[in-house]
Simulated assay, not measured.
Amino acid sequence: MRRLMAGFAAIAAVALSAGAAKASVTVIGGGLAEACSKAAMAGGSAQRSEAICTQALDTEMLSPRDKAGTFVNRGIMKLRRGEMPAALADFDQAARYEPKLGEIYVNRGAALIGAHRFADGLADLNRGIGLGIEEPAKAYYNRALAYEGLDDVKSAYFDYQKAVELSPGWDAPKQELTRFHVARRD
């Protein structure tokens, strides 16, 4: 297996331009926390959407899971704007409330990949996958990015394949696979 597209900079560009996939957390029951959840799921990253999440955290009586989910959703908005340290802080807060919520670690992994901390990102992604998540294809896609950052092309290839298998209609992992060439060794 050989990488067709050379260069570490290309991996970083993929991680930041196409973006590591983010896994939001559904919060229901009305109120600001649900509005925050909907904004995160819709791809929101505006400061006003983040402010809704902050207001929910500051004023609403939330269960530990919903509080964690709201921190995750706010962290995703920060992640989308490239604010890695702030996003990581929100994911750390989420883990204090619901340490077994896999989406926390998938998103921490995405933020760490964005910060070029691939080994740390890989550890969080593995933890998130192990805990179980609603959208595992995103975790495998992110893990493939981490493997590429660590120059483990074979593992990256298999994780892109797994992402396609889990979400056949998602184009991002299919695009990544076009960069690979598989050949038999004699």
Rank of each mutant, 00 (worst) to 15 (best):
G43V: 00
E176L: 13
L131H: 02
K22R: 14
L166Q: 03
P173T: 10
N107R: 02
Y157K: 11
A40T: 00
A137E: 15
P168H: 04
I76C: 04
A6H: 14
L122Q: 09
G128I: 02
T59C: 06
G30P: 05
D66F: 11
R185A: 09
F180A: 12
I133A: 05
K100R: 15
L32V: 01
M1A: 10
Y160P: 08
F71D: 07
G114D: 09
T54A: 08
E50K: 05
D66E: 13
G121N: 08
L166F: 03
G169Q: 06
R48S: 04
L166M: 07
V72N: 04
D92G: 15
Y157G: 03
R127A: 07
H181D: 13
Q47G: 07
A35E: 01
K162P: 05
E103H: 01
L112E: 14
A23Q: 09
F91T: 08
S24H: 05
R48E: 01
R185S: 09
S155D: 12
K38T: 00
T70E: 01
L177F: 07
Q55G: 05
N142E: 11
E83W: 11
I11G: 11
Y140Q: 09
Y147M: 12
V25H: 01
Y97E: 14
S24P: 13
D186V: 12
A10D: 14
K174T: 10
M84D: 07
G109F: 10
I129F: 02
V25D: 03
S167R: 14
S155V: 02
A39W: 00
E134Y: 03
A33R: 05
E50S: 11
R65N: 07
A123C: 04
A56F: 03
A18I: 06
S167F: 06
G130T: 01
Q161S: 15
P85I: 07
T59L: 08
S24Q: 05
I113K: 03
Y160F: 15
A6D: 14
F8R: 15
A89L: 09
A42T: 00
A110D: 04
N142R: 13
E34V: 04
A94E: 04
F71Y: 13
L145T: 05
G43Y: 00
P64V: 07
Q55V: 03
D186H: 13
